[in-house]
Simulated assay, not measured.
Amino acid sequence: MKTLLIIFETIIAIAIIAVILVQPGKTNGLSGFISGGVSETFYSKNKSRTSEAMLIRTTVVLSVIFAALCIIQNLIK
């Protein structure tokens, strides 16, 4: 049972790394802070429907699963 949990945890860890590496960088940085940065475009209004939002949701879900597997693995001793 413990070996199976370790295998699942390793697979989830690799998936988290892959999803994070696929996400685009935040290019605004300090220049967006100085100039205001918020522009009302079609993209900014529909940001929840983009592939970037899907990648963020996937990262959160995988992270929660990873944390749950770590807790379960520590409880089984």
Rank of each mutant, 00 (worst) to 15 (best):
residue 40 E to D: 15
residue 9 E to Y: 10
residue 50 T to F: 05
residue 58 T to E: 02
residue 41 T to I: 10
residue 11 I to S: 08
residue 46 N to H: 15
residue 29 G to D: 12
residue 52 E to V: 14
residue 2 K to P: 09
residue 24 P to N: 09
residue 74 N to K: 15
residue 76 I to R: 04
residue 56 I to T: 05
residue 37 G to M: 07
residue 74 N to W: 04
residue 9 E to D: 11
residue 7 I to F: 08
residue 25 G to V: 14
residue 36 G to N: 02
residue 22 V to F: 13
residue 46 N to D: 09
residue 10 T to I: 15
residue 48 S to M: 02
residue 45 K to A: 13
residue 77 K to N: 09
residue 39 S to T: 15
residue 11 I to W: 02
residue 37 G to R: 10
residue 53 A to Y: 11
residue 64 V to H: 03
residue 5 L to G: 01
residue 20 I to T: 15
residue 15 A to W: 00
residue 21 L to G: 07
residue 61 V to L: 10
residue 18 A to G: 08
residue 27 T to M: 11
residue 55 L to E: 01
residue 28 N to I: 03
residue 75 L to E: 02
residue 73 Q to D: 01
residue 65 I to D: 02
residue 56 I to M: 06
residue 18 A to D: 03
residue 57 R to W: 13
residue 57 R to V: 07
residue 1 M to K: 09
residue 72 I to G: 05
residue 47 K to S: 12
residue 23 Q to H: 10
residue 42 F to R: 04
residue 54 M to D: 05
residue 32 G to L: 09
residue 4 L to A: 13
residue 13 A to C: 12
residue 76 I to K: 01
residue 73 Q to L: 12
residue 49 R to K: 15
residue 28 N to Y: 11
residue 3 T to S: 10
residue 29 G to A: 15
residue 39 S to E: 14
residue 24 P to M: 04
residue 65 I to N: 05
residue 24 P to R: 07
residue 5 L to T: 02
residue 18 A to K: 04
residue 27 T to R: 11
residue 27 T to W: 06
residue 46 N to C: 02
residue 42 F to G: 15
residue 22 V to Q: 12
residue 46 N to M: 10
residue 45 K to E: 13
residue 61 V to R: 02
residue 18 A to Q: 03
residue 25 G to Q: 12
residue 68 A to Y: 01
residue 63 S to I: 06
residue 70 C to R: 08
residue 8 F to T: 08
residue 37 G to D: 06
residue 55 L to I: 01
residue 54 M to I: 10
residue 71 I to T: 04
residue 9 E to A: 11
residue 57 R to K: 11
residue 36 G to L: 08
residue 73 Q to H: 08
residue 56 I to L: 05
residue 77 K to M: 04
residue 15 A to E: 04
residue 51 S to Y: 13
residue 52 E to H: 06
residue 33 F to W: 14
residue 34 I to C: 03
residue 7 I to K: 07
residue 42 F to A: 07
residue 39 S to K: 14
residue 41 T to W: 11
residue 68 A to M: 13
residue 19 V to I: 11
residue 28 N to F: 09
residue 32 G to V: 05
residue 58 T to Y: 07
residue 21 L to V: 08
residue 49 R to L: 15
residue 10 T to E: 11
residue 7 I to G: 00
residue 72 I to Q: 02
residue 28 N to T: 12
residue 16 I to N: 00
residue 66 F to K: 07
residue 29 G to V: 06
residue 1 M to T: 08
residue 31 S to G: 04
residue 50 T to R: 07
residue 38 V to R: 09
